[in-house]
Structure formats: C-alpha cells, structure tokens
C-alpha cells in the first residue's frame, strides 16, 4: 500500500529525516514510535506533501508521490490528521466535514456524515456548533471524521491521543478499530505506548531521523529491554 524508501527531509538547515524507510500493507495498522523531535511529524508532513522531501521515494499504491502538491496526494487517497488537529474553528461541524469531502472511490462505500456520526456519536449532537467551541477530544474526533470524508485508502494520524483524557483515548481506540473495519489502512505516530499497542499490529521506532527498530507490536510488548533502549521506559 505504502512504501517509503530512504526519505530525507530538511527544515531550514536542520536535517530532520536522515533516511527513513518503512512500508505498510493494505488493511494493516502501523505505529511510528519515538520521542519528541525524532522526526515522526516531519515524516507525515513529507508524505502528505507539506514538507518537500530532499530525496527518497514514497510509493503509494504503486505511484511515486514524493514532492507532489498536497492536494494531489490527498486526492490520490492519502488522508492526514495533523498533531494540532487544525480544526477550522469558525466553521461548524458540518462545514468542517464538507471541506474534507472528496468523490467516492471505486469499490469502497463513501463516508457520509451519518456514517461518521455512527463512529463518533458525540459529533452527531453538535452539527451546527463551530469547531472553536468544542473540547480537545471532540476536536480530535472531528479532525479524523473530516479526513475520512475524503474517502482515504490510507490515513495518517499524528499523535491522536496527545493531550486527551484517558477516557477519550479509549473512545479513540474504538474509532480506529472501526476505521480499519471500514477498509482504511492506518499509520499513526504516538508517544503513548499503551494506546499504540492497543490499536497497531506493526511498529517502527524512529530516533534522530533514522529507523532504529521495526517489527511486530507483540515483540515490542514482550521485550522490556527493547522498550528501555529506544523509548526510555
């Protein structure tokens, strides 16, 4: 589904990504782990085209999307939910969803507001509320729902649990499972290991812009030494 090869990216003069490679199969869920500043967010921004990678290949569904415009990549079926959520605070819930709407894709039932309200019941009660008057958890749900309106085949979730109360994080676990049931491949960046382990099958650890470890989530769960080394747990 998605294969990233030797991705390099710079922010100004800082060499943030120094050869990131990973791949994720259709229907799978992969988590990128690593501390703050390791390069998880920059990886996502490079994938969606908000940061122009300096070199490397990004193959999405067989086509190379590295260096393309964000809207081209999004229309190709790559969805992105940023770490800061970036809800349009002046727009209502329904309008936020409208901005994210893209045509349906072959062989996949399109996401509609009604279908999304099934996964995020909190949103159903606040269709006309401006995004700015929602709590952090509700905004996070709206951000995900908005991206799903584009009927992505793969969704990038940047720290979806950050700053959320544990009880909301639990709802997020269910939402991600529902997404996967809907046929969406998931790649998420996380710091909350418990959350990551609850939703992903594969994990990749990024450290200082490089891949430090890759494997199955179960291995990570079993190996305390590994966690200690790379995640300082």
């Amino acid at each position: 589904m998605l294969r990233v090869d030797a991705l390099h990216a710079h922010y100004g003069r800082a060499h943030i990504l120094q050869g990131v490679s990973f791949s994720v199969a259709k229907g799978d869920a992969l988590v990128l782990l690593g501390r703050n500043g390791a390069g998880k967010s920059t990886t996502f921004k490079s994938l969606i085209g908000l940061v122009r990678p300096t070199s490397g290949r990004i193959a999405f569904d067989g086509q190379d999307i590295a260096g393309h415009e964000p809207h081209v990549i999004a229309r190709a079926g790559l969805g992105y939910v940023p770490e800061e959520r970036r809800i349009f605070t002046d727009l209502t819930v329904m309008e936020n969803l409208e901005v994210g709407r893209l045509p349906a894709r072959d062989g996949q039932p399109p996401w509609t507001p009604e279908r999304l309200f099934g996964i995020f019941p909190n949103l159903a009660a606040m269709r006309t509320r401006p995004g700015g008057r929602m709590s952090g958890g509700e905004q996070q749900m709206l951000a995900i729902a908005r991206t799903l309106m584009g009927n992505p085949r793969l969704i990038l979730l940047d720290e979806p649990s950050e700053g959320l109360a544990p009880v909301i994080v639990e709802q997020m676990v269910h939402a991600i499972r529902a997404m996967r049931d809907g046929g969406v491949t998931v790649v998420l960046a996380e710091q909350n290991l418990h959350f990551a382990l609850a939703v992903a099958d594969h994990a990749t650890i990024i450290e200082k812009g490089r891949i430090a470890w890759a494997g199955r989530v179960a291995e990570l769960q079993a190996d305390a030494g590994l966690r200690e080394t790379w995640l300082a747990l």
Binding site: P166, V167, E170, N192, H194, A198
Partner: peptide
C-alpha cells in the same frame, strides 16, 4: 473513573 480515568487500557 467514569469521566476521566476510564478502565485503564490506555494508561497502563
């Protein structure tokens, strides 16, 4: 527990 902590799945 109900409004905040939850069951503890995601907090260890």
């Amino acid at each position: 527990r109900e409004v905040y902590l939850g069951s503890g799945v995601t907090t260890g």
